[in-house]
Computed example of a mutant assay.
Amino acid sequence: MERMRRFYERFIRLRGNPREIALGFALGLFIGMSPTMGFQMVIAAFCAALLGWNKWSAAAGVWITNPVTAPGIYAVNYWVGARLLKMGWSDGTAQALEAQSLVSGALQKTPHVLASVTLGGIVLGLPLAFAGYWAALWAVGRYRGKVKARLEQTRQRLREERARRKASRTS
């Protein structure tokens, strides 16, 4: 929980336009749902640079898939994609017990599995990116609003102190 809090605090303090930070984060979340684990940060930073969005927030967004969450995310992506492509989970477990059949079956099914995971990632990644954009925009805007209010309070306090000193010198 402490790590999440530190991540959040570092995220909301990123430099740049809040809209570009939010767009970068949304892009990262979307790419994080793709079956490109191992290359996601590079892809996200490259795309963010091309689009003029925040590269750091894009890289942060891809961490939605990490070694802990990836099995669950990819399983759900596969399930959604397979349903949309009208594919079943498996078409025969008896053959899967033979090693040679397992290897040849896996090689034959690879394009279908990849298509299912990719389609599922797109279908689930779009609403996640949309929600992530608004959440990031709100969080960064809220933080900056608080900082601006504190700065204004400090400025006001300094003005009042300056006015008191000036009044005490003239009396």
Score class of each variant (00 low, 15 high):
G24I: 07
F25P: 03
A26N: 09
A26M: 05
G28N: 05
G28F: 01
G28K: 02
L29S: 09
F30E: 11
F30M: 03
F30N: 11
I31Y: 12
I31S: 10
G32C: 07
G32V: 01
M33I: 00
M33S: 02
S34R: 06
S34I: 04
P35W: 00
T36K: 03
M37V: 13
M37P: 05
M37L: 15
G38Q: 01
G38T: 00
F39S: 00
Q40A: 05
M41T: 10
M41G: 15
V42L: 15
A44E: 02
A44K: 01
F46N: 12
C47Q: 08
A48M: 04
L51T: 06
G52A: 12
G52Y: 13
G52Q: 03
W53Y: 15
W53N: 09
W53M: 10
K55L: 12
W56K: 13
S57C: 00
A58F: 06
A58P: 03
A58R: 09
A59W: 05
A60S: 13
G61K: 02
V62F: 00
V62L: 01
W63N: 07
W63I: 08
N66A: 11
P67H: 11
V68W: 15
V68M: 14
V68L: 15
T69I: 12
A70V: 04
P71A: 03
G72I: 14
G72E: 04
G72Y: 01
I73A: 03
V76A: 11
V76C: 08
V76R: 02
N77M: 02
Y78K: 06
Y78Q: 01
W79F: 12
W79S: 11
V80Q: 04
G81L: 08
G81K: 02
A82H: 05
R83E: 13
R83V: 11
L84C: 06
L84S: 02
M87F: 08
M87N: 10
G88T: 14
W89Q: 00
S90C: 11
S90W: 03
S90M: 14
G92N: 01
G92P: 01
G92D: 09
T93G: 10
A94M: 09
A94I: 05
A94L: 14
Q95C: 04
A96S: 15
A96C: 04
L97T: 13
L97Q: 15
S101R: 12
L102P: 05
V103K: 06
A106G: 07
A106F: 15
A106H: 09
L107N: 01
L107G: 05
L107A: 10
Q108N: 10
K109A: 15
K109L: 10
K109G: 07
H112W: 14
L114W: 02
A115C: 02
A115N: 07
S116M: 08
S116E: 02
V117A: 06
T118S: 12
T118E: 08
L119I: 01
L119Y: 05
L119E: 04
G120I: 09
G121P: 07
V123T: 08
L124I: 14
G125W: 12
G125K: 10
G125P: 06
G125H: 06
L126T: 13
L126Y: 11
P127G: 06
P127M: 13
L128S: 13
L128E: 09
A129H: 02
A129G: 06
A129D: 00
A129T: 10
F130I: 15
F130S: 04
A131C: 13
A131S: 13
Y133I: 08
Y133C: 10
W134V: 10
W134E: 09
W134H: 14
W134K: 13
A135N: 11
A135W: 08
A135R: 07
A135P: 10
